[in-house]
């Protein structure tokens, strides 16, 4: 294992110390591993919290700030945070308008957030609603799986819902926007390499030089199938086709198109992939209204990418364009 770390056991704590030092506009509770915007709670605004395992940076801590999240709970690498953290964050971001929990659909995350919502309701009386993202078309959504994973849509959702909360919508209204974004979004990812969880010390799976994994998530888990390495044009088709066949993205309002890097793929290649994705969408009659390219929901140092489309409309575009000021996403503010 070759990593810029000290002790594998201290990776998350020490990264949070660095984040705290680098971003005076954030406040980090190191005991509870919670990143807050420094001015939380914002009175009268619905509080937005998310959280999940570490290793996906900048998600979620890097999306804390005006126009996006009020707090993010960091778990161990690839491990959901615990209910105590979400309960504490819920108390501290409630500005009197209730709190929305944004949860990615993984068994651990869902169970811990469920316990947190029960405890927060009982202990504090804060009104809590939860929205679960589940946009990964690589997973068959059936009785026989844990359901689709929450992946790229989570990033776009946190941005859009952050703007909706800033507009002063109530908790039910903010949750409705979140459900709409999730319902209109789909993703598919692939990996060229595995990744190494610091505490495990070795790659989660072995992937020969001439092979790639199609349909991976964001935890170094193997995908749906392993295929021979192919040119970017063919890889783009393997990602875009299952997304387009799952939901109709044609229409005058177009889509928000997000090409995400998994952590170990340079922007040069991500833009090359975006070019291929854009060409495929053009051919399919899907108009791109807005785009995002870069590593925003990563899987440690995994090489690879994912493609996310969210069907847009006037409301979503307006919320997308609204100012945001976080370490990970920043425009108009």
């Amino acid at each position: 294992m070759k990593k810029l770390i000290n002790d594998p056991a201290d990776v998350v704590a020490e990264a949070l110390r660095g984040m705290d030092a680098a971003h005076p506009e954030l406040r980090v509770d190191h005991a509870n591993r919670i990143v807050y915007r420094a001015d939380a709670p914002v009175q009268g605004k619905v509080g937005l919290i998310s959280g999940g395992g570490s290793g996906h940076e900048p998600m979620h801590g890097g999306f804390v700030g005006p126009g996006m999240l009020d707090a993010a709970c960091a778990g161990e690498v690839f491990t959901s945070p615990v209910p105590d953290q979400m309960v504490e964050a819920t108390k501290n971001v409630d500005g009197g308008a209730g709190v929305l929990h944004i949860v990615k659909n993984y068994t651990g995350d869902v169970m811990n957030f469920e316990m947190a919502a029960e405890l927060a309701g009982a202990e504090t009386g804060v009104e809590v609603l939860s929205v679960v993202t589940d946009d990964d078309v690589a997973v068959q959504d059936s009785l026989y799986t844990a359901g689709r994973r929450g992946v790229g849509v989570t990033v776009l959702l946190e941005k859009i819902v952050g703007a909706a909360a800033d507009e002063g919508r109530d908790l039910a209204g903010v949750a409705a926007v979140a459900r709409k974004v999730n319902g209109q979004g789909r993703s598919m990812g692939m990996a060229l390499t595995s990744c190494t969880v610091p505490a495990a010390g070795q790659p989660t799976f072995e992937l020969p030089d001439d092979q790639m994994e199609i349909g991976i998530g964001i935890h170094g888990e193997p995908g749906r199938r392993r295929v021979p390495l192919a040119p970017a044009r063919e890889v783009a088709a393997m990602l875009v086709e299952p997304v387009l066949s799952d939901l109709d993205f044609t229409g005058p309002d177009g889509v928000i198109c997000f090409v995400n890097g998994m952590g170990g793929t340079p922007l040069l290649e991500l833009y090359l992939m975006y070019n291929e994705v854009a060409a495929l969408l053009d051919k399919a009659g899907v108009r791109i209204a807005r785009s995002l390219v870069g590593p925003y929901i990563t899987s440690l140092e995994m090489a690879g990418c994912s493609v996310t489309l969210v069907k847009a409309d006037d409301e979503l575009i307006r919320l997308w364009d609204a100012p945001v000021r976080t370490p990970g996403l920043r425009w108009g503010a």
Binding site: G75, T79, P81, V82, P83, G108, M111
Partner: peptide, 12 residues
């Protein structure tokens, strides 16, 4: 365990 494990194992 609920407070320290996380993941699915913690709640279970």
């Amino acid at each position: 365990l609920v407070s320290t494990v996380g993941g699915a194992s913690g709640p279970l």
